[in-house]
Design a protein around this nucleic acid. Structure first.
Lengths: 189, 189
DNA sequence: AATTATCTATCTATGAGTAGATTGCAATTG
DNA sequence: CAATTGCAATCTACTCATAGATAGATAATT
C-alpha cells in the first residue's frame, strides 16, 4: 500500500514514455503528474535509468501475463493472434500511446546500456511467445506446412509495432487494417 | 557551395535523429560533429524546429526520388517491392539507423506541430507510392484479385518500419526475414 | 525511537536561443 | 588599381530555463 506511489510513478512514466519517449519527459513532468516533488521521485528511483529499467521489467511482466492468458483462453491460432493484436491496439486507444518496446527502441542508441538490455529481452521474448503460437498452429495444420513459424512471428511483431507508430502519426486505422490482412495472409493457406 | 554547410548540418542532424531521436540530440552535439559553434547553427536554422522541418522535407524528397527510380527501373511488382525494402535496409546498414519517419513518429506527441504535419505527409505519401505499385501489380495479375492494394501497402510499410526498429534493438536480421516472408505471402497467390 | 517518505533548497550541467563583435570576400566606386 | 562599402557567415559571450541529482531538514508511520 505504501509503495502504491511507486506504481503511480511507473504508470505516469509509462504514459510519458509511450507518448513522448524516454528523452521526451523529465522528472518534473512526472512530479507534476503524480503530485509530489522531483526530489521525492529520486527516493524511489535514484536515477532516471533505474526508473526506465523498472518500467521495462514491469511491462515485460504485463506482456508475458497477457500472452499466457491468451494461450489459456484460446486454442485456435486465429483467435490467439487476435488476442495478440488486442494487446497492442489497447495501447493506442488509451491516450494515443504506442508500445513501450518501440517507443524505447526508436531512441535505442541514446538509452543507457541497462535499458537496452532489458529492451532486447522484451522484444526477443515477445517474438518468442508469438512464435510459440505459430508452432502449435503449424502442428494443428492452421498454416501452410512450408511456412516458418519463427519468421511469421517476426513479421507479425514488426507489423504490429510499425502499425501502431504509423497509426498514431497519421491518425488512421492502420492497425486494424494490418491485423486483418495479416490474418488473411497467414491463416490456413 | 556556401550552403554546403547547410547540407552538412542536415546530414549530421539526420544521423542523430535516426540514432538518438529528435529529443536525443542537441545543437551542441551537432556543432561538435560539423565543427562550428552552436550560435552558427542558429544562423542557418534559427530554431531546432526549423531544422527538423527542413530535415523531414529533404527526407521526403529522398524517398520520393527513390520510389520514382524504382518505378522506372523495374516493372514487376516483386522487383519493385525489393527496391522499396532496399530503401529501408539501406538505413540500417549505415550506422544502425532507422527510418527518419519512425524515429520521429515514435516521439510524435512531443514534436512541434509543424514537424508533426510534415511527418504525416511523409508517411501518408510513402504508403501511397507503395500502394501505387500494388495497384499496377494487381492489373498485371501479380497478386490475388481479392486483395486490396492499399491494405497491402499499409502492411508492407508498417512491417518494414517495425522490422527496422526491432532489428536494431535486437541486433538481428529481422528486416531480411520480414521482407522474404512478405514476398512469399503477397506475390502471386 | 526508528524507519519511511516527503519536503525545501541548492548544485552543476546542459538546453535552446540572442546580442553584438569580427572576419572574409565580392562588388562598387574614386 | 586601390580603397571602401556591404553582406554573409562565423565567432565570443552571454541569458534564462530546465535537467538530473544531492544534502539535509522535516513529517508521518509503526
Amino acid at each position: 500500500m505504501s509503495d502504491d506511489i511507486k506504481t503511480r510513478l511507473l504508470d505516469a512514466a509509462q504514459l510519458l514514455v509511450q507518448t513522448h519517449g524516454h528523452n521526451g519527459y523529465s522528472y518534473r513532468d512526472l512530479a507534476t503528474q503524480v503530485g509530489i516533488r522531483t526530489a521525492s521521485i529520486h527516493y524511489h528511483f535514484p536515477a532516471k535509468t533505474d526508473l526506465a529499467v523498472a518500467l521495462v521489467r514491469r511491462y515485460y511482466e504485463f506482456v508475458s501475463t497477457a500472452m499466457k492468458k491468451i494461450e489459456g483462453e484460446h486454442t485456435s491460432l486465429a483467435k490467439r493472434l487476435e488476442g495478440v493484436a488486442a494487446i497492442y491496439s489497447g495501447c493506442l486507444s488509451a491516450n494515443h500511446r504506442i508500445c513501450v518496446a518501440s517507443a524505447l527502441a526508436a531512441e535505442y542508441s541514446s538509452l543507457p546500456r541497462e535499458v537496452q538490455e532489458e529492451l532486447n529481452r522484451l522484444i526477443t521474448d515477445s517474438q518468442g511467445w508469438i512464435a510459440h503460437f505459430f508452432e502449435e498452429g503449424k502442428k494443428r495444420g492452421e498454416i501452410l506446412p512450408a511456412r516458418d513459424p519463427a519468421a511469421l512471428a517476426r513479421l507479425w511483431y514488426a507489423a504490429l509495432q510499425g502499425a501502431l507508430v504509423v497509426a498514431r502519426a497519421t491518425d488512421t486505422t492502420v492497425l486494424a487494417d494490418v491485423t486483418n490482412i495479416l490474418q488473411q495472409l497467414t491463416i490456413q493457406g
